[in-house]
Write a protein that binds this DNA or RNA. Structure first.
Length: 487
RNA sequence: GGUCCUGUGGCCGAGUGGCUAGGCUCAGCUCUGCAAAAGCUGCUACAGCGGUUCGAAUCCGCUCGGGACCUCCA
């Protein structure tokens, strides 16, 4: 198995990855809250983890990938005082909360499917695990690290921090945190300013609520992940991931809950993906600078010059490392679109290459470089740089400028299959098969007619054919062995 | 205000203390009836100022700029 290094937020450095029980591997990723359409920033995170999931699988791990759907318990405003996001939307639209959940869950899955991300092994929901969440809250109370206040259960952060490292994930100092936490109004129920709710008492008008030992209420936000990761991956598993914006609060509290519950920190490796930015600022729902995937595909957005296909967008995301911010721009997307296109054209060309007797290239070294890139904390930009070396080889071989043996060609095909399709999850974007077959036939005929015209030195006709085809976005390329075309 | 991250050539974006990442754009060349495609070559950068070092974009300090978190957010 490949020697893989992963940047671990807990240690703030790259560590060699060691699975608890190889080849089995447990990975938990915080999923979306389904009260609105997912935006592109959300998609970036899930695409990043899709690559990680795919690569771990590719190098031989049997990964159980759990990604939750948050359909309850996520509060609208700070301090555990606000209203449930899903409930709020339901009231606005006069719908059942679960209607909202259903709409946006389906929408989320559709979008992820367009981006060709693999579904997780398990996609559990918060509302489906109310009992488990209550059990954890109870146990934490039994362990003396949570208290009840007017029907709401709070986690006692300061008490916990006396015997545990509460800030392990951020490296902050607790007293500084206590000093710097902004003043919150109406928080009299809490004993400590950092305390957070495990279970929240529901107001009369609240739509999503469940009975509990402490009265009718609903779960706090952080506890669902503790409940579901423990249930499906055990008290300790290998990788826990999520967006960087979850690190300081959500994940910090999640670790505290798990330790308070069973004495164990849940995951050995914490992976955090960086934000997608627009004009240098984080894309977020609250800032109102989000792009919806559909707006991006159609180009129907004031900041967009044109539409971009899902695979072009996926490629665009992969040209940046997952721990760097990625700034969104038309120019960068256009560049990626072209690069992606070259990658796919080269693959088509690879299928037609004829083997030489000898080889002038070291394709095995190229393959090794691809693995090395991915083993270095899933470095997709470097992987892509190596793949462009493969493109150069293929195109040059096609021009007769270098030699590739059958073994080389087979290895290049394997590299494409493994890295481009399996790991990066890119795929060819083509129309339906039937229309495609018909078009192939028509184009073959057209190019034959054009070849005849050229043979007769009737360049007026051959140019006219080429120009008219260009008008309908079909590009004709004259090569040594006849003409070819692409859209 | 506190904590942390970051500043790379026209644009995007990797990066190890010493060996031109890569993509896109632009210019030139090769190929071509002409194009396109492809290949080759060039535009060879590391915010500023100091320091450590034989040697720093890469380590340290300061200054300036950008961002994230501290409050719902992937």
């Amino acid at each position: 198995m490949e020697k893989l290094f992963i940047y671990n937020t807990l240690s703030r450095k790259k560590e060699e990855f060691k699975a608890i029980n190889a080849p089995f591997l447990g990975m938990y990723v915080c999923g979306p809250t389904v009260y609105a359409d997912v935006h592109l920033g959300n998609c970036r995170t899930f695409m990043s983890f899709d690559i990680i999931y795919r690569y771990l699988t590719h190098i031989g791990y049997k990964v159980r990938y759990v990604r939750n759907i948050t359909d309850a318990g996520h509060l609208e405003s700070d301090g555990d005082e606000g209203e449930d996001k899903v409930s709020k939307k339901a009231k606005l639209q006069q719908l059942e909360p679960m209607e909202i959940v259903q709409t946006y869950t389906v929408g989320f899955r559709d979008v992820m499917n367009l981006f060709n991300t693999l579904p997780p092994s398990i996609e559990p929901t918060a509302t489906g695990h109310i009992i488990e969440q209550q059990e954890i809250a109870k146990k934490i109370m039994d362990n003396g690290l949570a208290y009840e206040s007017n029907g709401t259960i709070y986690f006692d952060v300061e008490k916990y921090a006396r015997s545990n490292n509460y800030t392990a994930l951020t490296g902050r100092k607790l007293d500084e945190l206590l000093e710097n936490t902004r003043d919150l109004d109406g928080q009299s129920d809490k004993r400590g300013r950092l305390d957070f709710a495990l279970w929240i008492k529901a107001k009369q008008e609240h739509l999503m609520k469940w009975p509990s030992p402490w009265g009718v209420g609903f779960p706090g936000w952080h506890i669902e992940c503790s409940a579901m990761s423990t249930k499906y991956l055990g008290e300790q598993f290998d990788i826990h991931g999520g967006g960087m914006d979850l690190q300081a609060t959500h994940h910090t509290n999640e670790i505290a809950q798990n330790v308070a519950y069973c004495g164990k920190s849940p995951a050995n490796y914490w992976i955090h993906t960086n934000m997608l930015t627009v004009n240098g600022q984080k894309m977020s729902k609250s800032l109102g600078n989000s792009f919806l995937p559909m707006e991006l595909f159609t180009g129907n957005h004031p900041l967009l010059k044109k539409g971009f296909s899902p695979m072009a967008v996926r490629f665009f995301m992969m040209q940046t490392h997952y721990r760097s911010t990625l700034d969104f721009s038309n120019e960068a997307l256009e560049a990626s679109e072209k690069a992606y296109h070259r990658l796919m054209e080269s693959y088509k060309l690879l299928q037609t290459l004829k083997a030489s007797d000898s080889s002038s290239e070291d394709v095995a070294a190229l393959e090794r470089a691809c693995y090395d890139a991915m083993n270095d904390d899933f470095n997709t930009p470097v992987l892509i740089a190596h793949l462009f070396e493969a493109i150069r080889m293929i195109n040059s071989a096609n021009d007769g400028k270098l030699k590739l043996t059958q073994a080389d060609l087979d290895l290049l095909k394997a590299i494409y299959q493994h890295f481009v399709f399996d790991v990066m999850g890119l795929k060819k974007e083509e129309e339906s098969g039937k229309a495609n077959t018909a078009l192939e036939g028509v184009m073959k005929l057209v190019l034959e007619l054009r070849a005849k015209a050229k043979a007769n030195k009737d360049f007026a006709t051959s140019d006219e054919i080429r120009n008219k085809l260009a008008e309908v976005n079909i590009q004709v390329k004259d090569g040594k062995e006849g003409a070819s075309w692409n859209l």
